[in-house]
């Protein structure tokens, strides 16, 4: 009876974390899945996986929940700092856009002066995200997806947390299949690949806020 209760508690906790992971950002990919769990995983009445897999799913959910929590914290900082700047007009000049980007980038970099790789992509969430990507890229469209991402994608270049996204580097394609597999992000943030690194980018500030090395499976 006690074991049963423990199992139910773990499952309930896991479900809660998954829901938290999905709900903490307003954006998702093309499909209906937003976090680690596939629609099949979430399907009511689906056969329950073995206990060790349940625990793994819960650990993964916890890792993504932590990632989402850090994204939320970052977003709060972003919003606070952006509120100190004049609103960007919907009919802005390129100079105004550039000025706004750089000013916000400076404010964020200053506020996160000690920020380092792994502050948002925690060790645990990096591991989950890498596995999610392996799953996507080992699928039937994997090679095509990779080719699409690597199209016009530069080789290794130096990247820094809080650094401006390199002006001369095109933004990589992010195929819907890949976005579907990754955690949801708020409008202010995007995932992009630079070579085989996955970056988290602040769109308004045009800066890199975290990096996962070797995210794109070989």
């Amino acid at each position: 009876m006690g074991r049963l209760l423990r199992s139910v508690t773990i499952l309930a906790l896991g479900a809660g974390l998954m829901a938290c992971a999905r709900a903490s950002g307003p954006r998702s990919g093309t499909g209906t899945s937003g976090g680690a769990a596939s629609p099949a995983d979430r399907e009511a009445g689906a056969p329950k996986p073995p206990a060790d897999e349940q625990v793994k799913v819960n650990v993964d959910a916890q890792a993504l929940a932590e990632f989402n929590e850090r994204v939320k914290e970052y977003l709060a900082l972003h919003n606070k700092l952006e509120a100190t700047l004049a609103n960007l007009s919907k009919e802005a000049t390129p100079e105004a856009i550039d000025k706004h980007q750089r000013a916000l980038g400076r404010l964020i970099a200053e506020a996160r002066r000690g920020a380092k790789q792994g502050d948002i992509f925690t060790r645990e969430s990096r591991s989950v995200i890498r596995r999610l990507l392996v799953r996507v890229f080992s699928g039937p469209d994997g090679r095509q997806l990779k080719a699409s991402i690597m199209d016009e994608n530069p080789g290794p270049i130096k990247l820094e947390v809080n650094g401006r996204y390199p002006d001369a580097i095109p933004l990589s394609t992010m195929p819907p299949q890949v976005l579907d597999a990754l955690p949801r992000l708020p409008d202010e943030l995007e995932f992009r690949f630079i070579a085989d690194r996955l970056i988290l980018m602040d769109v308004h500030a045009h800066i890199i806020i975290d990096i996962i090395e070797d995210a794109l499976p070989k």
């Binding site: 960007l88 007009s89 919907k90 009919e91 802005a92 000049t93 390129p94 105004a96 856009i97 706004h100 980007q101 016009e152 095109p170 933004l171 990589s172 394609t173 992010m174 995007e190 769109v203 308004h204 045009h206």
Partner: peptide, 18 residues
């Protein structure tokens, strides 16, 4: 497109209204 910075949406001459 995939090569476009999202902030182009504010550029007056692209008429995207943000």
């Amino acid at each position: 497109g995939n090569h476009d910075a999202r902030e182009q949406r504010y550029y007056k001459l692209f008429n995207m209204d943000g």
